[in-house]
Design a protein around this nucleic acid. Structure first.
Lengths: 196, 196
DNA sequence: CCCATTTCTTAACCTGGGTTATTGTAAATG
DNA sequence: CATTTACAATAACCCAGGTTAAGAAATGGG
């Protein structure tokens, strides 16, 4: 059963008894999000965090000029939500949708907090996951401040090797922070435009 | 006593008994870092996380060209470390130093993990602090991807109102991601360079 | 109080990446 | 299988922000 993917992720950091696993599963909702469907829309409240069993989600914001900026891709084994909206229960400025048909387990903030009291090990697990997310987010900030677009493209290829050939390259551009035109120039033109 | 500042921060999220406060304080080390002195140097391991009681620290990375990029300022009431090195105990790529004489409490990762077992509420506190840091980091990423330098300067002024007049403006430039020359142009020149 | 160092400003010129537009092509959709 | 719709490539031109340089102002240590 697909719940095993989630349990597997938990067991990397904590040990859960059979009863605890059962209890946890009572608080989860399984859902299929079809390609191009939304899990979260700007203006809504992120009531749940999602664990991706298969497929891939993305979170992004849309700026004043209508450009999308991708914060995170979530392939198999990743958690995704808008953390701001999830912890404050205020309206989100992000959108989350599916790049392909995707299976997820949803855990509401409400249930998460209940579980933290019933199974303190779960609070540990999420503490660790959040620490790791913070490391990733800070690293990406540094990369954006110190690297060129071409170097960031290289890092993307290492970080999400499975995605490169599976998603449109305009999404890669929206992640590394350039226009699709410029990414195309990078990959093909490479460097030179000047004479010989 | 200055420990009260830390306890005050804890009490915003959790309730600690007198004994628990005592136990916690046994694991903390008080330290004064004088202006321009280092708390962490590239290549070292971040054994501790620091809580700033007074003064201000900063964390930054240095890129291939020798330019500094500031990840975080930590005035009174903020926690700071290199989360990557702190959780993995691998060598850091960041540097942390003091912008002015600064008082901190240090908590080692080792002691932090011991405390998480002895006082689960502390794990909750750090789970919450880390969630909030993640929100801040993600927001800053969005800002860097979607806003102009001028808009980012405005946000800096709102985020760290106390710092604007207390730190050299080259540091503000290193935070918002522009050169000191360009920030100067922004503040004074404003817009025009072309003819009337 | 003075000299040295660091910081700030200004200005001329440069470039990485953006904008706009066109054309070709591959998927969805009917 | 025709037709919309979305994606990628290319190219000419543009601009926010970087680079270099050099003088003015602030800071700081002896």
């Amino acid at each position: 059963m697909s719940l095993q993917k989630l349990i597997g992720s938990l067991q990397k950091h904590i040990a859960l008894s059979a009863q605890e696993q059962e209890l946890l599963s009572d608080f989860l909702v399984f859902k299929i999000i079809k390609k191009r469907q939304f899990l979260l829309h700007e203006g809504q409240i992120a009531r749940e965090v999602a664990f991706v069993v298969s497929g891939c989600l993305r979170s992004y914001s849309i700026d004043q000029n209508g450009f999308e900026h991708i914060l995170q891709f979530a392939p198999t084994g990743w958690w995704i939500t808008d953390m701001y909206s999830f912890i404050s229960q205020q309206q989100t400025h992000l959108t989350i949708d599916a790049l392909m048909d995707t299976e997820v387990y949803l855990l509401s903030r409400e249930n998460q907090l209940i579980l933290f009291d019933k199974i303190p090990k779960l609070e540990r697990y999420f503490r660790i996951v959040t620490e790791n997310s913070l490391v990733g987010s800070r690293q990406r900030l540094i990369d954006n401040l110190s690297l060129t677009a071409s170097q960031r493209y290289g890092i993307f290829c290492n970080t999400y090797p499975t995605l490169i050939h599976d998603i449109p390259q305009k999404l890669i551009a929206a992640y590394i922070g350039v226009t699709p035109e410029f990414l195309s120039k990078l990959k093909n033109g490479g460097a030179k435009t000047k004479k010989s």
